[in-house]
Simulated scan of single mutants.
Amino acid sequence: MLTHAQIWRAVDRLAERHGLTASALAKRAGLDATTFNRSKREAPDGRPRWPSTESIAKILVATGASLDDFMELVQSPRGGPSHPASVGRSLPLIGFSRAGDGAFFDAAGLPVGSGWEEAIFPDIDDAHAYALEIAGDAMMPLYRDGDIVVVSPAAAVRRGDRVIVRTRRGEVLAREMKRRTARTLELRPLSPGLPDQIIPEADIAWVARVLWASQ
């Protein structure tokens, strides 16, 4: 029997497989950008809401995936890769809380130094890609304790992308890119109910895009 969580997780994995957020996947499929938002997955009274068959059909067409591909994502265990297991390479890995340590990144946000672990992840077209392991529940419900995000310093960052931001004071943030101007960076928190954050561009050391997450 298919569960509500399995179906929604497959939608997220399909988006991640193509380097998209759930919102970007919806827009590519010609749907409203909020179609797959977390807030749309439950009714106000807590009852589960399911994606429509029409919306599933449209994202399959938009990504070129087959129904069998989607069912493979549905049936793969939690925490399993959202890319084919046969494709992957070793990426440097550290805990998210350690990313603020200047010893692990250069001025451009590229991983450097020792102390990194290694793990096999889906192949990413960025020689400097790295992985961060989430600890705690501060990013719930999007990321849970133990989830791993793969980050690409080379990937172009667009509105709606999930990003890792490091300030010049050494603070490291996981956010959604809302807007960027010549003077400021406007970010949306991953946890609901928190206010948007505006950071002066002069205070930003680097911004890198999250391409994949092991959810």
Rank of each mutant, 00 (worst) to 15 (best):
L93S: 13
L91Y: 03
R89P: 03
L73P: 01
L67P: 12
R168V: 14
E176L: 09
P153T: 00
G102F: 06
A129Y: 00
N37Q: 04
T53C: 11
R158V: 15
E118L: 07
L67D: 12
V74Q: 06
P92M: 03
T35G: 08
A107V: 10
T167Q: 11
D137S: 13
R162K: 07
E42D: 09
G79Q: 14
R175Q: 05
P92I: 00
E42H: 15
D32S: 15
V157D: 01
M71I: 04
A99K: 05
T167S: 10
R78D: 15
L173R: 08
V112H: 12
E176F: 02
D145I: 09
L110Q: 05
A107L: 06
P84N: 13
V74S: 05
A107R: 05
L93K: 14
K58S: 07
G136F: 02
S66V: 03
V149W: 04
Y143N: 04
V165D: 09
I164H: 01
A174L: 13
S55T: 12
G102Y: 04
R78Q: 15
R144Q: 11
R38V: 05
R41M: 06
D125E: 14
G113S: 10
A135Y: 00
P141F: 09
P48H: 07
P84S: 08
H83E: 10
A129K: 03
K178R: 13
V163M: 08
F96G: 11
A156N: 13
S152Y: 01
G113V: 04
